[in-house]
Simulated scan of single mutants.
Amino acid sequence: MSRRHLMLKIVLPLLILSLGIGGMLLLVKSRQVPPQQSPENRGILVETMVVKPTDHRVEVLATGTVQPRQQADIVPQVSGKIVEIAPQLVAGGFFRRGELLLAVEAVDYRLAVERAEANLSRFELDLETVRARAAIARQEWDQLHPGEAAPPLVVLAPQLKNAEAALQSARAALELARLDLERTRLTAPFNCYVRSETTAAGQFVRAGTSLAVVVGTDQAEIITPVPLDDLIWLDVPRRNGDQGSPARISLQIGDRAQLWAGYVDRSLAEVDARGRMARLAVVVDDPFGLKQQQSGVAELAIGSFVNLTLQGKVLEQVVALPRQALRDHDTAWTVDDRNRLRIKSVDIVRREREQVLVGTGIDTGDQVVLTGIAAAVDGMLLRPQQREAQP
């Protein structure tokens, strides 16, 4: 290899490297340093809602099981063989008040009425006979002893009283016989449906034996536990017949929620020993929809477990805040007109399941912060974004 070729092979790469380093240094020295800019502090992004005091009706949420308001055992007052049974006297059958449930053989009781009527006629005749004899005896005494009082035995006074008593007893016996005859036909004591029955045609029944259980259909009631603190918001009647706070009863059936209207009827005047809660009775009229004109009305069946919303008193000019907006139990965060955080103490009137009702501390038009902020400090800069209105 020639010396010239060797020099080119060594010197040329060094020359290229030197030119590259020189060009890089020239570019570094000739560049302009960009002006330094501090990032703009726009504040922490938070979700807010604008509040306005309004009148708010207190709602107390509760649950309970539907149970009968009226229930009765069908018990015959006379003995005999069953000769007639209504076709709908089966479990689930409906009756109107006064409709026949079943009938006991009435032959013996009809004969007893005829026998009592005959006895009554005989005692009426006996009384008339004694009265006639007493009148004759008094007339004879007055002729023989004018101006003197007749002794009771002479004018048949004891016999007359005995005949009158016998006649009164005969009338009572006739009334009892007629009553027993009426009792051979058992009718529905009120609008009802049959809960259970143990009857069969030809069956001999004795007085005092339960044959069926019927449940009233005009009303049903729900016994629901309510916290003692919630009683102050509800209207609980103290007299029979008064209606208390309205109630909305809901039951989820499939993908639909069925609704019924009711009202607070009374308090059971005792506190549950386990839960330390008061118990209220809520009444629902026409739970089976029998009085409704339209078809397809859902039945509020006995034994259903339902949700209740008891509508209480109206609180005037309060602010309803989501529970997430309440801080440290009695404070709320707001945003002022300069987008600064303000921590305010609030007066809580009532705490509900999903919201709190504030009496004072929040003004009309305040933007209340809904987003949580770590280490929040009064006066810190925020970037509020109002919550979209709920549809």
Results as ranks from 00 to 15, higher is better:
Glu99Phe: 04
Glu128His: 09
Arg131Thr: 14
Gly98Phe: 07
Arg97Pro: 00
Ser121Gln: 15
Leu125Ser: 13
Arg96Pro: 02
Ser121Ala: 15
Leu100Pro: 02
Glu99Thr: 03
Ala91Leu: 01
Glu124Gly: 11
Tyr109Arg: 12
Glu128Leu: 12
Asp108Tyr: 05
Ala116Ile: 03
Glu128Trp: 03
Thr129Tyr: 10
Leu101Phe: 06
Arg133Lys: 10
Gly93Phe: 09
Arg122Lys: 10
Leu125Tyr: 13
Ala118Thr: 08
Leu111His: 14
Leu102Ile: 06
Glu128Phe: 03
Val104Thr: 04
Arg96Met: 08
Ala91Arg: 14
Ala106Asn: 12
Ala118Asp: 07
Leu127Gln: 12
Glu124Val: 03
Glu114His: 02
Leu101Tyr: 01
Glu99Val: 00
Asp126Pro: 00
Glu105Trp: 03
Glu105Pro: 12
Arg131Lys: 14
Glu114Pro: 00
Gly93Trp: 04
Arg110Asn: 10
Leu120His: 07
Ala118Val: 06
Ala116Val: 06
Ala118Phe: 08
Val90Asn: 10
Val130Gly: 06
Arg115Phe: 02
Ala112Trp: 00
Leu120Ser: 08
Gly92Ser: 01
Glu105Phe: 02
Leu102Lys: 03
Leu101Asn: 03
Ala91Gln: 10
Arg96Ala: 07
Leu111Tyr: 10
Gly92Leu: 07
Ala118Lys: 12
Ala116Asn: 07
Leu120Gln: 11
Thr129Glu: 09
Leu127Lys: 13
Asp108Trp: 00
Glu105Leu: 08
Leu120Asp: 03
Leu102Cys: 11
Arg133His: 12
Tyr109Ala: 08
Asp108Phe: 02
Arg115Pro: 00
Leu100His: 04
Ala118Tyr: 09
Val113Met: 04
Ala103Val: 01
Arg110Ile: 01
Gly93Thr: 08
Val130Thr: 11
Glu117Ile: 01
Asn119Arg: 13
Leu89Trp: 04
Val104Trp: 07
Val90Lys: 15
Leu102Val: 08
Phe94Gln: 09
Arg110Ala: 14
Phe95Asp: 06
Leu125His: 11
Ala118Met: 14
Leu102Gln: 05
Asp108Pro: 00
Glu117Ser: 14
Glu105Ala: 14
Ala116Gly: 05
Thr129Cys: 00
Val107Met: 07
Arg97Met: 06
Arg131Tyr: 08
Ala132Asn: 10
Glu128Thr: 13
Val104Asn: 04
Gly93Tyr: 04
Leu127Ala: 03
Asn119Glu: 14
Leu111Ala: 10
Val113Lys: 04
Phe123Tyr: 15
Ser121Cys: 00
Glu105Arg: 10
Leu100Glu: 11
Ala106Trp: 02
Val90Pro: 01
Gly93Leu: 09
Phe123Thr: 14
Glu105Ile: 01
Ala112Gly: 04
Ser121Phe: 05
Leu120Lys: 08
Val107Tyr: 08
Arg96Glu: 09
Ala132Cys: 00
Ala106Asp: 15
Arg97Asp: 10
Leu111Ile: 10
Glu105Tyr: 08
Leu125Gly: 09
Asp108His: 09
Ala132Gln: 11
Leu89Gln: 05
Leu101Asp: 07
Val104Leu: 11
Leu120Trp: 06
Asp126Cys: 00
Tyr109Lys: 13
Tyr109Ser: 04
Val130Cys: 10
